[in-house]
Design a protein around this nucleic acid. Structure first.
Length: 1294
RNA sequence: GGGCGUGUAGCUCAGAUGGUUAGAGCGCAGCUCUGAUAAAGCUGAGGUCCGUGGUUCGAGUCCACGUACGCCCA
């Protein structure tokens, strides 16, 4: 019944399995099988549908698939819903590149509607691409047809109607965007898309709840800004727009304000200055010793908005006095003679095109500047820490902006502060890497801080509660609070000149210079960017403790990462959540603001509410998705008392994309549309994701959103959690442990790995890897292009046009060599001999090994509950151990011990599988399975080969038992490993159970991958026929009647004996093919000794030793060595231990032999009497004559080293056989082919041996005749038999 | 700067509660076995267990300090 097995051909085998699944609709059958049964809820973290997958995506996706498959095989109903992350800046950036757009203006000219449609198109195309890649991985999900996704992408933005067939089989016709916005809904099935209207609207529900609790507010952030573009920039964009430019930089001095009472510089706090008139600046030029802070900046326009000055408290600051006006300056000591930009002057700024600009002189040191101005005198040094708290007079305190309470724009919460009353020296602090924000070197070591004009400045300002003065309007010009500067453009050179003029007039200008540096520019227009304070929307996170409580309800894996602690730490330290972004493609923030009063705003909780409230624009919007620009025109009326009837307009911002992903525990399970269904699946049992970063992204957003969504619905944190268990894993790296980058060609694309390494191999690598550690995947050789054989034919480039390159991977090779190839070879061994022998498993046996419950038509299942608890995996109705032969196979109890041993091990493996897989610990299961495969291949099959070779004899029950045992092991192993390596196990199953080859040729399948008819190819409801796929089998359950821990112990004792004896043979230079007469063993443990005795045949055969004899002891053959057991003696004798250690072995057997009989001994040592119990002393064997001995864990082994002429001749016969077998192999003979053999040797002991052992040799080699040839064979190589040279050749096949 | 973690063979990593000669896999050298095996077995070379100090009869293990690296946070 079996098909012959050839090479493993892992990769092409996977392709044929994919076709088989498609043809047989295996996944659909699986879903039907489990429909209505106990649920297991997986929630997929959406993958960004913006690029094709790399191997780093495949790790998490392998977890997702494997656990889903495991829970499917254990009979759980599941959603199988994949998710695509669709909205956000990352898509916009790619689309802008693709379209050559760079500024807000450019996008506006292109049209927001066109731009947004382009974003949707990109997402749909890459969703299709990732769908196909995932399918190649064997990832079973309720996938949309990729061709239809592409069709939707093509038709987006047109008036054409499109017809699609949904994964649930519904036919729908509408315009493309109207279909796209509904993708993933529960009626249609398929992947969820975060751009769907349901997803966006559910976020509105969330934001409404936040609003109801008063958590939404408008705040500020400082962003890189282009005045002409009227747009903010992201860090990514800034990186692309850096350019070398020159600015007028300026040294300025700020008069330090002295406390007149004490005569020392003093801190000014808050309003103190206004209330205590005693604090006044003293800047009369006549007064000796006016003190100044020396400050330097390359952006003079920001001086208008100075609030504070930062120093490094650990730095030394020098105090100098100038000759010209006796002014005293403070600045960093190291800066006095610091050669500013010396290396840049010489070598440029790091790129060839960034040379020092012509016409710009070398920069002067501070010492030089002061010398040119008349010279100076050093007065001493002081630590920065001593300066912190000093007050000073700001450079533009006369401006309204500086005097206005609460800063610009006015912060109602900070009205006690203004610029003027806040000027003081602060500690500059440190950045995220721990280096100080203020350092010596460039500048003066005293940094001017303008929280309205800079990123770090803003952070410091917010942290210290400083007033924020933001000078610029969105066109990049000063606002009216800035006096003469109002209306001037910040970056215009004339503005800097006006700053200098005014500073000069105040006596604050020290020096101006032309300063070259790298500065961010708009990468499109080339304009300089400025940092500008912008309005942003925030969620006040003062309810963080509620989220922490929810976090504590969740199990975080792997343990070693302590994810819960990490998440709690993040929740403790995070600031309010900025949810707005001044962009185009994303969630339309449902915040409507009163046109006449910006403080009057309201959040819409649903489209229905919006429609109800709208007074204008709904008609134009209707029929479009709730995205910009379509939603922007909808106007509502304020209902705020006193402002009724005033028009409210949506803020133009889009939402933070983590809102999109955070809402999915609600949106994708129908929270707003089918609450009953939602309750069935919430919370998810598992989410799994690559964790670096996600503690503050996806995990954070899900926890926050769920906590808020449930605040009015559930009382305790337990009921708010969005998922029960989180399984994180680290990163995929290259083979050297370095990150892989797309840019330098080291990132491995998914298809490169899949078609060169094979996905079963990859899956095993991912699953066996400790998730807490980076996976060193392999190396991409970007200089070695390869042609890949894909399911769709050969390719030399990916769809994106990247040349496909060679990928090598040591870990993958190891996995293949240690796991997949041995498994395949076990399978091939079985098939080869089963075919040769005509072994056919009985129906009863096939049924037993390929069980599947519930493979019945759907209507029979509905409403029925699962009759077996999935956790109860040992509960079997009937035992197999003692069934008689009438059942169609040999009763297990009647099989040899080694058969019962492997079956017992198999049951243990099944138990491990259930235990570890339900704990999401695939590595533990993989390790156990690898051990089992090794036992199967290198012990069970190796030791039992002869049972399979025996001649054909139907009454040979021992042989049948061997076949039945191996068959059961192989099929059960397929089922056990099916969730992990679904392809290889399917191929084996198809042949072992169904007798079908799973090859490309044998499978016919539909031309159109997406449109296979939903017909079933097999009758599924026949109770007794094995399922048509391994994935439709039930997961194996352990038969505890076959479980026998004793067998494991005795087998491992036997293996120990074998290992010891192999070692002895090696040491005595006695090769295994040379038979030996006798092995003796002894063990003080009777059970162990008996176990070894039972397995004496197995041991003798493995070791090629005639007799394996049990003895009570080996005293006659060995001597004993004694060592103290420090663990027991240490506590008893303390310092005496050292003496004990050297002297005790010297006492020898004469004194200590009673210990071996379990008796106590009292010995004299160093003058003290020592009582020794048997536990206190470790005994080992040492030597013998004509015997060699060794011992391990209480088992002693001795083998006889005497070689008689008889034994030598027997060894020669084994050599002879071995050589003939090699000839058979070289000649590619079939294992059943019969031959005739001739040999020639000058040594007549060879002829004597052949005469004695001829029957044995002929039997082993299937030779009808072995003939001595008096003459040497022509061209025949001489081999060694025993010590004699012999020529052997096969004359012919018979 | 704070927090957490890591540092053991050429590489990747194990080494509860302190205990004798510190292990495994890969790689390397040699031998062996092979009628499934591209596999396997045995032997060998290869270690200042990051450093210093301490506790202890005894420290890779516990403590302190230092050092290098990684991650998280501000």
């Amino acid at each position: 019944m079996f098909q012959p097995v050839t090479d493993s051909n892992f990769v092409t085998g996977e392709h044929s399995v994919l076709k088989l699944w498609l043809q047989q609709q295996t996944f659909q059958q699986l879903r039907r099988k489990n429909a209505g049964r106990k649920r297991w809820s997986f929630l997929d973290g959406p993958i960004t549908a913006n690029n094709p997958m790399g191997v780093h995506h495949a790790w998490g996706r392998t977890y997702k698939d494997t656990y889903q498959r495991f829970f499917a095989m254990t009979g759980h109903d599941q959603r199988f819903q994949n998710g695509f992350d669709c909205q956000g800046l990352w898509v916009e950036v790619e689309v802008e590149k693709q379209l050559g757009l760079g500024t807000k203006t450019a996008v506006l000219e292109f049209g927001i509607d066109n731009f947004v449609n382009e974003c949707k198109r990109r997402v749909l195309r890459f969703a299709a691409r990732q769908t196909e890649q995932s399918q190649r991985l064997g990832y079973w999900m309720d996938w949309d047809n990729p061709d239809q996704l592409r069709q939707l992408a093509e038709q987006l933005g047109t008036d054409e109607e499109v017809t699609i067939t949904t994964p649930t089989g519904k036919t729908e016709t509408a315009r493309a965007h109207q279909l796209a916005e509904r993708l993933g809904n529960s009626e249609w099935g398929g992947s969820y898309f975060t751009f769907s209207t349901e997803n966006n609207e559910t976020i509105w529900t969330f934001l409404k709840k936040c609003f109801e609790r008063g958590k939404i507010y408008k705040g500020h952030d400082v962003m890189p800004w282009s005045g002409r573009g009227g747009s903010a920039y992201s860090q990514m964009e800034i990186a692309e727009g850096r350019k070398l430019t020159t600015h007028k930089s300026v040294f300025v001095r700020f008069p330090i304000i002295h406390d007149e009472a004490s005569g020392r510089a003093s801190a000014l706090r808050g309003k103190d200055r206004d209330e205590h008139g005693g604090l006044t600046p003293n800047r009369s030029p006549e007064t000796q010793g006016q003190e100044y802070l020396l400050v330097w900046t390359t952006t003079p326009w920001t001086l208008t908005s100075n609030v504070a000055c930062a120093v490094n408290p650990d730095l030394d600051y020098i105090k100098i006095q100038t000759k010209r006006d006796n002014a005293i300056y403070y600045f960093a000591k190291d800066n006095l003679n610091f050669q500013r930009l010396a290396s840049e002057f010489r070598d440029g700024f790091g790129r060839p095109e960034w040379k020092w600009p012509e016409g710009v002189g070398k920069l002067k040191t501070l010492a030089q500047i002061f010398k040119e101005q008349g010279g100076f005198e050093e007065l001493g040094t002081i630590k920065g820490a001593q300066m912190v708290g000093w007050g000073y007079e700001g450079p533009f305190d006369d401006l309204q902006a500086q005097q206005q309470a609460g800063g610009v724009p006015v912060d109602e919460n900070n009205l006690s502060r203004c610029g003027v009353n806040s000027h003081r020296v602060i500690d500059g602090g440190r950045d995220s890497r721990g280096s100080a924000n203020v350092v010596a070197g460039e500048g003066t070591g005293i940094v001017h801080i303008a929280p309205g004009c800079g990123d770090i400045d803003h952070k410091m300002g917010v942290a210290l509660g400083l007033p924020i003065i933001a000078p610029l309007k969105d066109d990049g010009t000063y606002s009216e609070e800035f006096g003469d500067f109002a209306g001037l453009e910040a970056i215009a050179p004339a503005t800097a000149e006006l700053v200098f003029e005014k500073l000069k007039a105040k006596g604050m200008l020290v020096a101006v210079e032309t300063y070259p540096h790298i500065y961010p520019h708009c990468w499109r227009t080339g304009d300089e960017l400025v940092f500008r304070l912008v309005d942003e929307w925030f969620i006040n996170m003062d309810w963080r403790d509620e989220i922490k409580d929810v976090t504590r309800q969740i199990k975080w894996l792997p343990d070693s990462i302590d994810g819960q602690e990490r998440e709690i730490e993040w929740l403790s330290n995070m600031s309010d959540w900025m949810i707005s972004k001044k962009r185009f493609w994303g969630l339309a923030l449902p915040i409507w603001v009163n046109e006449e009063d910006p403080s009057d705003f309201e959040v819409m909780g649903s489209l229905a509410e919006l429609k109800e409230r709208s007074i204008e624009g709904w008609g134009d919007f209707e029929g479009n998705t709730p995205h910009r620009p379509w939603i922007d025109g909808v106007i509502i009326e304020s209902q705020t008392p006193g402002k009724e009837g005033q028009r409210m307009r949506r803020v133009p911002d889009v939402g933070n994309p983590w809102l999109d992903a955070g809402i999915v525990p609600f949106s994708t399970m129908g929270y707003n549309t089918n609450r009953e269904e939602w309750q069935k699946w919430y919370p998810a049992d598992l989410v799994t994701e690559c964790f670096p970063g996600q503690f503050r992204n996806w995990f954070y957003s899900m926890l926050s959103l769920s906590t808020m969504m449930r605040y009015d619905e559930a009382d305790n944190a337990e009921d708010k959690k969005p998922f029960r268990t989180l399984l994180g894993h680290r990163l995929v790296q290259n083979e050297q442990g370095k990150p892989m980058h797309k840019s330098d060609g080291t990132a491995i694309w998914f298809e490169e790995a899949a078609e060169q390494i094979g996905v079963d191999t990859m899956r095993w690598m991912y699953l066996a890897q400790n998730p807490a550690m980076d996976l060193r995947f392999g190396t991409r050789h970007h200089d070695k292009p390869v042609t890949l054989q894909t399911p769709d034919g050969p390719i030399e480039k990916t769809l994106e046009g990247v040349t496909t390159c060679m990928v090598t991977s040591g870990p993958a090779d190891e996995t293949r060599r240690q796991i997949l190839i041995p498994l395949w070879n076990c399978y091939k061994f079985f098939i080869d001999y089963a075919i040769a022998d005509g072994f056919v498993p009985s129906d009863a046996l096939r049924e037993r090994v390929a069980q599947s419950s519930h493979l019945a038509p759907r209507d029979e299942l509905s409403g029925k509950s699962c009759d077996k608890q999935p956790g109860d995996h040992t509960n079997r109705a009937s035992s197999m151990a003692h069934h008689a032969e009438r059942d169609g196979y040999t009763a297990v109890a009647d099989r040899p011990e080694i058969d019962r041993w492997i079956l017992s091990n198999l049951q243990s493996l099944i138990e491990v599988a259930h235990r570890e897989m339900t704990q999401y610990n695939a590595p533990a299961f993989c390790a156990a399975a690898a051990g089992f495969i090794d036992d199967l291949s290198n012990w069970y099959i190796r030791r039992n080969r002869r049972r399979f070779w025996r001649s054909k004899d139907a009454t040979d029950t021992d042989k049948n038992a061997a076949y039945e045992t191996l068959y059961e092991v192989l099929v059960t192993l397929c089922r056990l490993l099916a969730p992990c390596i679904p392809f290889l196990t399917e191929r084996m199953y198809q042949n072992l159970v169904l007798g079908q080859e799973c090859s490309v040729d044998s499978v016919q399948f539909s031309e159109n991958r997406g449109e296979v008819a939903l017909t079933e190819h097999r009758t599924l409801n026949t109770e007794h026929s094995p399922p048509p796929s391994v994935h439709l089998c039930d997961y194996p359950t352990a038969d505890i009647s076959l479980l026998d821990a004793g067998l494991n112990l005795s087998m491992s004792a036997a293996q120990k004996v074998v290992r010891l004896a192999h070692k002895l043979r090696e040491e005595s230079n006695l090769r295994v093919r040379q038979p030996l007469a006798e092995l003796r063993f002894a063990s003080s443990n009777v059970g162990t000794a008996e176990a070894i005795e039972r397995l004496a045949d197995v041991i003798g055969e493995e070791l090629n030793i005639h007799r394996v004899v049990r003895q009570d002891n080996l005293d006659a053959l060995v001597s004993y060595a004694y060592k103290p057991n420090l663990k027991t003696l240490g506590p008893k004798y303390g310092k005496l231990l050292n003496a004990l250690r050297t002297k005790l072995p010297e006492l020898g057997d004469a004194v200590l032999s009673p210990l071996r009989r379990g008796e106590n001994v009292t010995a004299e040592l160093e003058g003290s009497s020592v009582d020794l119990t048997p536990e206190d002393v470790l005994v080992s064997t040492a030597q013998a004559a004509e015997w060699v001995c060794s011992d391990d864990s209480g088992i002693q082994v001795a083998i006889s080293t005497v070689l008689t002429p008889e034994l030598i001749r027997e060894g020669m016969s084994r050599d002879f056989v071995r050589q003939v077998q090699q000839l058979r192999k070289d000649a590619n003979l079939n294992i059943q082919d019969r031959i005739r053999v001739q040999y020639h040797s000058a040594d007549n002991t060879v002829q004597a041996m052949v005469a004695e052992w001829g029957d044995y040799i002929r039997g082993e080699t299937l030779a009808d005749e072995i003939q001595f040839s008096p003459s040497a064979g022509v061209g025949v190589k001489s081999v060694t038999v025993g010590d004699s040279p012999v020529q052997i050749w096969i004359v012919n096949r018979v």
